[in-house]
Nucleic acid binder design. Structure first.
Length: 481
RNA sequence: GGGGCUGUGGGGUAGCCUGGUAGCCUUUCAGGUUUGGGACCUGACGACCCCGGUUCAAAUCCGGGCAGCCCCA
């Protein structure tokens, strides 16, 4: 095998997506998969630096909307999880339990948090007293443990993952729904407008809710193999939990009332996967400007130009995060390496350009080289920095939109799903009675009803694509992870 | 959840069928020559997933475990 094929990405993203993703994770040093517990991985600097920035954007956005940060314990007593029955039966099969300390058995088993509603709410009952305390908006960044699937995948589905969870209490159901809508807006502002990941927010069918929720809303992003991957979800948990945990407040009328809960869970490590998948190409990664671990790298092709590299670095480091590649590699190797690593801008310093007072800039958004004068570097870089993520988003949106197809019946649906598309059709109901049609789809096509859109208010007429009943909703159908 | 495949230096592999000397490429490290799209020379470090069994002898055969990949539900 030639050197080139061993060191770079060899799998084609659109032909062999699984292999491509595994190679990118390993060759771009995003994670080391050799840790000896199934479904657990070591996150390496190149992903951690980007995810730190992602956390930062998400947290700042939440704080601006009034969420206050907390750090809760990683452990939750068994009795807390038992307080709400649906929640318990939904999560119990996935819980890692701690049952002893040293040689002694614990009086009560402790769960490694699979999600933290039952930790937050018991404190809510101590903190919330009056309608004046509401809405009570919190969040934390946390690692989460779920023993949930045999088919673990790095970043996409691990048994430990990193997320933000918000937990809020509201006076009324109406306010809770308002919060859900705000969460969807947050998702758009951060995941789409900054990270460049297109998605659709669905209300999930009744049979596919978060355990303990009355309504579940979740964003689906798309992978090149035609499967959707669930991204942030937000839930209306109604009053079941506040009754179980006694989260009451005194209302204006002097009466004690149970509050209405919502929670929202953007999983940073999984969103990172979608960033990689959405923007990456056959050469490797492509980071949006805002979250690139390093935004610009300077490659002095001749060591004589090292001083010039330092001078340029000083000039531009006020506007970008920049490093110089002094390594003793040949230029071609450096070019390929930094393109694989997804650095947005590379500045090549060579003697030929230098004589003419010019430098070559490679921009990874367009995969194009341009030659500019040394004097205009700052201007040029700040211009590219403004365009960069927009270019990635434009391209990602176009790909996404082309993968949704309207279908009339199960035959067309099957064809669309086989082609790796998301099917859109009329459907009888996403309430309990629609599950029969959903099962028909799952059994025959292997795809799932992902739900209905809140942002798409079209009148529905005609019959369900599966049964003879009158259609009441438009649903989207896709294969999923 | 069911099934299949795989596990050899940091990475990729040969050897396994037919038991007996662990070979190659690459990375890394040291030194030198190089540098406009994956350079080269010299030298060095470094491995048979774990536990048990069969055997004079196990990377190789058998059993179990752990881990990874793929397919199906």
């Amino acid at each position: 095998m030639s050197k080139k094929s061993e060191e770079g990405i060899t799998a084609k993203k659109n032909e062999n997506f699984s292999e491509w993703f595994t190679q990118v994770v390993q060759k771009c040093e995003l994670a080391d998969l050799r840790y000896n517990i199934k479904g657990f991985l070591v996150f390496q600097p190149w992903s951690v630096l980007a995810m730190e920035k992602m956390y930062d954007y998400m947290e700042k956005n939440l704080q601006k909307k009034g969420h206050k940060p907390y750090w809760f314990p990683t452990l939750i007593p068994e009795s807390n999880l038992k307080k709400e029955s649906e929640h318990l039966s939904g999560f119990t099969p996935e819980v890692f339990w701690i049952s002893s300390s040293g040689k002694d058995k614990l009086d009560e088993p402790l769960a490694l948090r699979p999600t933290s509603e039952t930790a937050f709410y018991q404190m809510f009952s101590l903190w919330i007293r009056s309608y004046k305390d509401l809405p009570f908006k919190t969040y934390q960044r946390a690692n989460i443990f779920r023993y949930d699937t045999k088919a673990t995948r790095p970043f996409l589905r691990s048994r430990e993952f990193h997320w933000i969870e918000t937990h809020c209490a509201h006076e009324s159901e109406k306010n809770a729904l308002q919060q859900v809508k705000e969460d969807m807006k947050t998702t758009k502002e951060v995941m789409h407008d900054i990270f460049g990941v297109p998605f659709i927010f669905f209300e999930r069918p009744q049979w596919d809710k978060f355990p303990g929720a009355s309504r579940t809303f979740a964003a689906d992003a798309l992978n090149p193999d035609g499967k959707v991957i669930q991204q942030p979800s937000t839930h209306m948990i109604s009053q079941e939990f506040s009754k179980a945990f006694d989260v009451k407040f005194k209302d204006k009328d002097g009466k004690d009332k149970y509050s209405f809960m919502t929670c929202y869970g953007p999983a940073i490590s999984r969103i990172f996967a979608s960033v990689v998948i959405t923007h990456g190409d056959d050469k490797g990664l492509k980071f949006p400007w805002e979250i690139a671990p390093i935004q610009t790298v300077i490659v002095p092709i001749d060591a004589k130009l090292n001083k010039k590299a330092e001078k340029i670095k000083k000039e531009i480091e006020k506007i970008v995060n920049v490093e110089i590649d002094y390594s003793d590699k040949r230029p071609g190797e450096k070019f390929n390496y930094w393109e694989m690593k997804g650095i947005p801008i590379r500045i090549d310093l060579g003697l030929q350009d230098s004589k003419k007072g010019k430098v070559t800039i490679f921009r990874r958004d367009l995969d194009k080289k341009i030659v500019v004068s040394e004097k205009s570097i700052v201007k040029e870089i700040s211009k590219i920095s403004r365009e960069f993520t927009k270019n990635l988003i434009k391209k990602a949106d176009r790909v996404f939109d082309n993968r949704i197809k309207e279908v009339k019946d199960i035959k067309e649906m099957e064809k669309a799903i086989k082609e790796g598309l998301v099917a859109k059709c009329r459907f009888c109901s996403t309430q309990a009675d629609g599950i029969k049609c959903a099962e028909v789809i799952e059994k025959n096509i292997g795809a799932e009803v992902r739900g209905t859109r809140l942002d798409e208010k079209t009148k529905v007429s005609g019959k369900c694509a599966i049964c003879d009943k009158k259609a009441s909703v438009i649903v989207y159908i896709a294969k999923s992870y």
